[in-house]
Design a protein around this nucleic acid. Structure first.
Length: 667
RNA sequence: GCGCCCAUAGUUCAAUGGAUAGAAUUUCAGAUUCCGGUUCUGAUGAUGGGGGUUCGAAUCCCUUUGGGCGCACCA
């Protein structure tokens, strides 16, 4: 039973004995006493006045008197306006300190025997990870740690988006530009290689657009006379297009070289492309069709769509290339995950799950939750839930995004019978997840209430807002490397590593750089959009990871010294009955941890932990500054300060671990 | 157009409906230097605007302004 519970029960008995009333324990709540008043716990009396029939001040006085008389650990009280501030005895705090120091996993929750799935990262296999993914990964990993500490069994899940038109774009570009290169031959990480080709695909689009615009323009004489005489076949048009692409390349020597022969043969062998070419020719002959849009006439896009169809049919060539490129990408991702220290217990691949969900649709149709429109498409009406009508199956019977999610939710439940399923996904998908949960409720899924969308905001950089659309994405690997580099520079300048071996030093840079990055991204309320300042994050002062890491290292240094001078008998064996205010402040703060951890778990918010551990480090530094440890002549006082240091150091380490951050023993 | 989210010192972040809105950073002034420098103390400075509910509002409601996101038979 913690202190607040004990206080509450004394307040309850005060009401029983003084006023002869039973009150609801829930209206008794304590809060932290403001620094300028004496005491540590404060009871707000306003809401109690209707029971006492007294003014808030009188109520506070009366309860205060009762508590000092009956609760052994309440030594003094004062009432300011309607606030009753309680002072707890030093003996109580010293006992709590000793007890914390002997508790393993202090503050952790009881085993809840419930399973939670935390799904995060969930990358596209054609794009390397960027800054936004880092926030996602760190959040997911940390929330998983926090839930585990709260007593849940946690599955860290990664749903890999490894299929779809976007993958085919990369594959097509690889066929046309790749020239057989591999991560080894190009010396690129696998995900970077795939990403490069995704960009190259857009390159073809642009080139084609230029040329298609040219060919449909009447001013280009070399082709149009043939059109007018009706002599231009789709094949000839394609040949013309490829010729022009070649000319374009020749006049721009810096351009990436397209394998034109391969491209031409792909185009000529695709019926959809030939049909589209005929459409273009028809338009050139008779350009009255106002709906004709050049942007929609990209042959490369048509090829990518054909490729997706082939993939779905299981075409062996397409599948083989897909397999090969995905293997590269996964290797690249793993390298990054390893580097940033996140891990997963389970992977789902969309290539395996994209067909799921159709049975769910069937079921919903039978039960009348879904309905069919005239064209055969299937919908759900969520107007009662404050949402709109939403498509769940196309008229051709194929799945949409939400269909897959319906299916995967069932799959996950069948696999794990989770109590909660947490999706760490950006806030641009808020609506999607509202719909998902609403549908699951309507379908009567037992787990529907356990679905939680951990929605987080975008990360901006000081150099300007980053948006993938505008191409200003910041690559995750580059950023991490930059952080490690800055950590190294700063640390060297301060001369912290002069006596370190190069191996130790490198490990330290890694710890500091990553710690800075993770702490900075996690200390902010997840749902808020935030600004990441790399320079500020690696500072050793301020609300930063390295500041906290530094405090930990300092504590370890103190404990090493204590050991050297022979104080290593059990630290908790001392007799002391009085505490200095700064000492008590730290102990009070240490006592808050269980509650903070619980709240962080309930709110899925690593920021709670981050802000707590920062305050803890500050409180400790204040103690460190104001009182001497080793110059203390009174041995019980010296030992109790060492014990405070020991417990604080351990708790800093625990908190940082919950954030996925390592702390150094020395620096 | 409709819907959701956000708005707090110069800047970056805090604040279960509770006290004089806290930190960090910046600038200025000082202290400590025992274990360790980057530690500590103090000063300056803010709830976008207007209404309402409440004993009490940064927080809840309405309105207005300014940002972001979403409104695909894309994922």
């Amino acid at each position: 039973m913690n202190l607040e519970h004990q206080l509450s029960s004394y307040v309850l008995s005060a009401f029983e004995q003084v006023w002869n009333i039973d009150i609801n324990p829930e209206i008794i709540s304590f809060q932290e006493t403001k620094k300028e008043f004496e005491g540590s716990h404060t009871l707000v009396c306003f809401s109690l006045t209707k029971f006492t029939k007294l003014s808030p001040e009188q109520t506070g006085e009366a309860i205060g008197k009762y508590l000092t008389a009956h609760a052994p650990f309440v030594t003094r009280f004062n009432v300011v306006k309607g606030f009753l501030n309680l002072t707890i005895s030093d003996v109580y705090w010293l006992d709590s300190l000793k007890s914390i120091s002997q508790t393993t996993n202090y503050g952790f929750g009881e085993d809840k025997n419930e399973l939670v799935i935390v799904e995060y990262s969930s990358p596209n296999t054609n794009k390397p990870l960027h800054l936004g993914h880092l926030r996602n990964n760190f959040l997911g990993y940390s929330v998983a740690e926090i839930l585990e500490a709260n007593g849940y069994k946690v599955i860290r899940n990664n749903l890999v988006n490894d299929r779809g038109i976007h993958i085919c774009k990369s594959m097509l570009a690889y066929i046309l530009f790749g020239n057989g290169e591999t991560p080894e031959s190009s010396n690129l990480k696998g995900d970077k290689l795939a990403g490069k080709h995704y960009v190259l695909f857009n390159n073809i689009l642009l080139r084609e657009n230029v040329i298609i615009r040219d060919t449909i323009s009447k001013e280009i004489q070399s082709i149009n006379p043939m059109v007018e005489s009706g002599q231009l076949s789709p094949e000839e048009y394609i040949t013309e297009l490829v010729d022009r692409l070649e000319k374009l390349e020749r006049s721009n020597p810096g351009m990436d070289k397209l394998d034109l022969n391969k491209y031409k043969s792909l185009l000529l062998n695709d019926q959809c492309v030939l049909d589209e070419a005929q459409n273009i020719i028809n338009y050139i002959l008779n350009p009255v069709d106002h709906n004709f849009k050049v942007e929609e006439k990209n042959f490369s896009l048509i090829l990518a769509q054909s490729m997706l169809l082939k993939w779905e049919e299981g075409d062996s060539q397409v599948r083989e290339l897909w397999q090969k490129m995905n293997t590269w990408v996964y290797a690249g991702f793993e390298e990054t995950y390893e580097k940033i220290g996140v891990k997963f217990d389970k992977y789902y691949y969309e290539s395996n799950t994209y067909l799921l969900g159709k049975e769910v649709v069937e079921e919903g149709l039978k039960s009348g939750v879904f309905f069919t429109k005239d064209n055969g498409s299937v919908w759900i009406d969520l107007k009662e839930e404050g949402l709109d009508e939403k498509l769940v199956l196309r008229n051709d019977g194929t799945s949409v995004y939400i269909t897959q999610d319906l299916g995967t939710a069932d799959l996950k439940y069948n696999d794990f019978q989770f109590a909660k399923s947490i999706y760490v996904v950006g806030n641009e998908q808020d609506y999607h997840f509202k719909v998902l949960q609403a549908i699951m409720k309507k379908l009567g899924r037992p787990y529907a209430d356990g679905i939680y969308h951990l929605s987080y905001g975008m990360v901006d950089l000081p150099s300007g807002k980053m948006k993938s659309r505008e191409g200003t994405v910041v690559d995750a690997d580059d950023l991490v490397n930059e952080m490690l580099q800055t950590a190294e520079t700063n640390t060297r300048e301060l001369g912290k590593v002069n006596d370190f071996s190069s191996e130790e030093a490198n490990k330290l840079y890694q710890t500091l750089g990553l710690g800075a990055l993770k702490y900075f991204l996690l200390k902010v309320d997840p749902k808020k959009r935030m600004l990441f300042d790399p320079q500020e994050s690696v500072q050793f002062q301020g609300n930063t990871g390295p500041f906290i890491q530094y405090t930990h290292a300092r504590i370890r240094a103190i404990l090493r010294k204590a050991d050297e001078i022979g104080i290593h008998t059990p630290l908790w064996e001392f007799d002391r009955i009085e505490l200095l205010p700064v000492e008590k402040d730290v102990i009070v703060w240490l006592n808050k941890f269980p509650q903070i951890l619980k709240e962080a778990g309930e709110k899925y918010s690593p920021a709670e932990i981050a802000n707590y551990v920062y305050e803890l480090a500050k409180e400790y530094n204040r103690l460190y500054q104001e009182v001497s440890i080793f110059n203390e002549a009174h041995m019980p006082a010296l030992k109790s300060r060492l014990l405070i240091s020991y417990v604080t150091g351990n708790l800093i380490k625990t908190c940082m671990k919950l954030l996925g951050i390592d702390v150094p023993e020395r620096m």
